[in-house]
Design a protein around this nucleic acid. Structure first.
Lengths: 348, 348
DNA sequence: CTTTAGCACTCTCTTCCCCGGAGTGCTAAA
DNA sequence: TTTAGCACTCCGGGGAAGAGAGTGCTAAAG
């Protein structure tokens, strides 16, 4: 059977109506929405065809029609009109991203919340794992004979520091030697390699310095590990409770738990700039009845972060997609401006 | 009317039964739970009295009894047996707090989640505002002629650092001068005062150094502000959905929204080590039907953090209180061990 | 005076049934 | 191929009825 243009129009109307009402759509309604050029009877014939072709479903014999995942898919791929955001809204999005970039975590939390607030669905966001973060430079600042400050600059130019308490008194004169050692042997290598090398230099260093050295390395390895982790922030899970499909507390609880725990299991396609996963297209069990829209943003240095929205299959894909790309673009710009080291002398 | 010992026992049984079943408690049940020494008819008489005295309520004429806030209050104050945690559980609590203390935020999040997981109610946690955090010491580490690293140690011995990009080339030779200036004029003062003093020194410093100086001060003021903020972390809000009183999605949504937004509005009594607020005793509108248990823990230097649990009035107060003090004690110990500078050597 | 047994009564909750309405599928005509 | 008409189906709301739990009261027993 052929998918005529009229069938496509009908499908579109069904999807869009269902997205907003959450009620099965009847032939009357469709006929009305299509301008009265055809009667409801005609629509009924078409609807029967669409059901047969698998684009629509019927909850029971005498109910209206509801889009199937296949129907949503077609809608998303071909029927949906890319929504353009109003200038006003674009501005609001960008405003909501005006954060002090001091802590990346803060940015992620903030952005996640903002997205969720905009689209009224739960959102999740992550910075891509920085696979090869290494130390670029070490410094040790003496405080007193029992304390010193470690400062480590990482390959992505972020700086970490902490106060170290030394078990043994260390001759402050010797710190520079240690710094040299750190910078020559422990930069540009993975945490594992660091520990490896720590063993190697064990004999060449006086014991009390070695103790401090291993403290520093332990700290560095931790900090690098943490920096390399892909942390996922979820926000606005409670938005689910507003949706008729999650009025059932059990269902809501299930999905919310999934969102809270599933640090690893959320879909994160890395290739395309934006991806929409509908219902059963999701791998995770818990997302079988949900849809996910994910967009990626550039962090610089060929790294990408992801920002996604989870909602019912009856999600307003067009609206979500538009806002999500707005955010992705905003984030990309943010990182361009703030995170990257200036490429040439004269920037802004 | 007098509150006889038997009435108190009955009240206790009603509260404890209702806590677990969430169903009004009938005279039969009570009689059974009291060992059969009295008949249900006697109990009924007593119940009628308790209702009259305001300790119990009756949803409708022929239903069992439910504790009123006043009843809960009496229970909490006089009837409740302080639960002791098993060694096993105490251990688990302490284990769950074994976090790397690198970031205070991480600790809070972790602890909040752990509490919530233990007591099965939403939890919130905060570190007391560190009102008078100031800078204790500055360092500047040159990176190249356009970048340097600021390192600031704060009065509570935490260290913050960041890479600064300098608009103007700065003679690296001059950094030590700047550091001296920073340490002599900008330590031990509030952010406001910092900006004040920045103005004062404006003329005594060569312009390109001044630019860098103001960048450093801006960074320092931000970092201090952030460190002084009392951040509230909430966790496990979804636990609400498991409770019969929040099966109604609207109610759950309301309270969850409150928890998510109400950074300032949550009860935080500062005096006692533990406080229980029942239903209408709460000030916030949204908590009228909920109870809150809060415990405080010591951070050292006379500062306190708070850790609280939000649940239905029908909360298992004994269990929650026990676990909460367990956590508070654990946190206190944690800060003793890790945060405070070693005492022996004469602290500042 | 307190406690108990007995019993009628009240109220909720569940189940069942009925009915209206929305929507369909089919048929026959345009 | 489209449309009008019509019988049919199914959901959902709205009682009605009955079961169950629990009360309050009364009168007798301790």
């Amino acid at each position: 059977m052929e998918l005529t243009e009229r069938k496509r129009q009908i499908l579109k109307v069904v999807v869009e109506d269902y997205i907003h009402t959450a009620e099965p759509v009847g032939s009357r309604t469709i006929a009305a929405r299509m301008g009265g050029s055809v009667s409801s009877a005609t629509i009924r014939n078409e609807l029967a065809d669409l059901v047969e072709m698998g684009y629509l479903e019927q909850p029971h014999t005498s109910a209206g029609r509801v889009p199937s995942p296949k129907g949503y898919r077609l809608y998303v791929n071909e029927l949906m009109e890319r929504q353009k955001l109003s200038i006003d809204e674009t501005e609001k999005i960008n405003q909501s991203l005006h954060v002090k970039m001091e802590e990346l975590d803060h940015l992620l939390t903030q952005a996640g919340r903002a997205v969720s607030a905009f689209v009224k669905y739960p959102a999740y966001i992550t910075a891509a794992s920085r696979k090869h973060v290494t130390a670029k430079r070490f410094d040790l600042l003496p405080v007193d004979e029992h304390k010193c400050i470690v400062v480590m600059m990482m390959s992505d130019n972020r700086v970490r520091s902490q106060l170290l308490r030394m078990q043994l008194k260390v001759d402050l004169e010797q710190l520079p030697t240690l710094v040299t050692l750190l910078n020559s042997h422990f930069t540009a290598v993975s945490p594992d390699e660091m520990n490896q090398r720590l063993m190697n230099v064990a004999e060449q260093v006086p014991p009390q310095l070695f103790l401090l050295l291993s403290q520093v390395i332990a700290y560095a390895a931790d900090a690098l590990d943490e920096a390399g982790q892909r942390e996922i922030v979820t926000a606005g899970a409670r938005a689910l409770l507003k949706l008729p499909e999650f009025r059932d507390a059990d269902k809501a609880h299930q999905l919310m738990s999934f969102l809270a725990d599933s640090k690893e299991k959320l879909p994160m396609p890395e290739e395309e700039p934006m991806k929409i996963l509908i219902g059963p297209e999701n791998v995770s069990e818990a997302l079988q009845d949900a849809s996910v829209v994910v967009a990626s943003y550039d962090i610089g240095d060929d790294m990408r972060g992801l920002i996604g929205v989870v909602g019912p299959t009856r999600m307003d894909y067009a609206a979500v997609a538009a806002r999500l790309s707005g955010f992705a673009a905003g984030l990309t710009r943010l990182f361009e401006k703030q995170e990257l080291p200036p490429k040439e002398e004269g920037k802004e």
